[in-house]
Amino acid sequence: MSGDETAAIDAFEQLGLTSYEAKVFIALHRLSAGTARDVADITDVPRSQVYSVAESLEDRGLLEVQQSNPIRYRPVSVEEARETLRSQFEREQERAFEYVEAVESEPEGEETQENIWTVRGRDRVDDRSVDILSQAEHRIVFGTRLPELVTPSIERTLAERAAAGVSVSVVSGRDAVREQFAAVDGVTIERPPAHRTDDQRSGRIVIADDDSILLSVRGGEDGETAIWSSGSLFASVLIQLIEASDEMAVE
């Protein structure tokens, strides 16, 4: 068996055929038509197995059977087979994901799962920050000591939410950060409490409404790592603790 044929069989298996089904289907295209003996002569599929495999392929709509003696088999055209497998794959995909969606929407009793997630890498942290900010409906607090963490997407999202009527506060001890928002309507600029000391590992903090939060630190192989939670009791309690202790600001 050539490498190309092995790869083709592997591909057919990914489409839902068994190894024997793929081998018989390929063999029949090589023969144009043939008996179980003909197929067995050019494949490693035992003749006794060819009959059941051919029956399965017929059920799939991939070959036709001639009721002769001996029985002969003819494969459907390549285009017809391609369309048949594509339709079957799409139906199975739809059925699979319909079930997943149904399971996803089912309530899990009265237990509440606290979702606390970790993201690593500056770009991913930035994407998650934008996602949390963009969903804020009432208020936002964004804090960082590093101007480079106020990316264009962060700056744009804060300005858009402010324009939409969301209360937006930017907290930083750095002039460069505060100056980025000096001319943005609706954004309140604040300094951190005087008692805060400079923390060289601090990254950024994002608070959206009263139930979404992201906290990041700089350093390590990933450059920036954050934990975040949204719509959870954990997020609500952590926000209250941070605000009560003046930790919302990043010096």
Rank of each mutant, 00 (worst) to 15 (best):
I239P: 15
S48C: 09
S134R: 02
S77Q: 12
G223P: 05
S153W: 06
I205P: 03
E106K: 12
L238T: 00
I116H: 12
D131Q: 01
V170N: 09
R47S: 09
G223D: 06
S77Y: 07
S169W: 05
V150N: 05
S19E: 14
W228M: 03
L158E: 02
D38P: 08
V78A: 13
R86T: 11
P152F: 11
S32G: 12
R30E: 14
T157K: 06
S245Y: 06
Q14I: 04
R120H: 08
I154E: 04
P152M: 09
L62W: 06
P147A: 14
W228G: 02
V39P: 09
V237L: 13
S87D: 15
L63Q: 00
E148A: 15
F97C: 06
A208I: 00
P193L: 03
K23L: 01
P193M: 02
V166T: 08
R72C: 04
G109I: 03
L17K: 03
R218W: 07
D4Y: 13
S229G: 07
A8H: 10
E111N: 07
I116D: 08
R30N: 12
R95T: 11
S216K: 01
S216F: 02
A194V: 06
D59W: 14
P193C: 06
R95F: 08
S169Q: 13
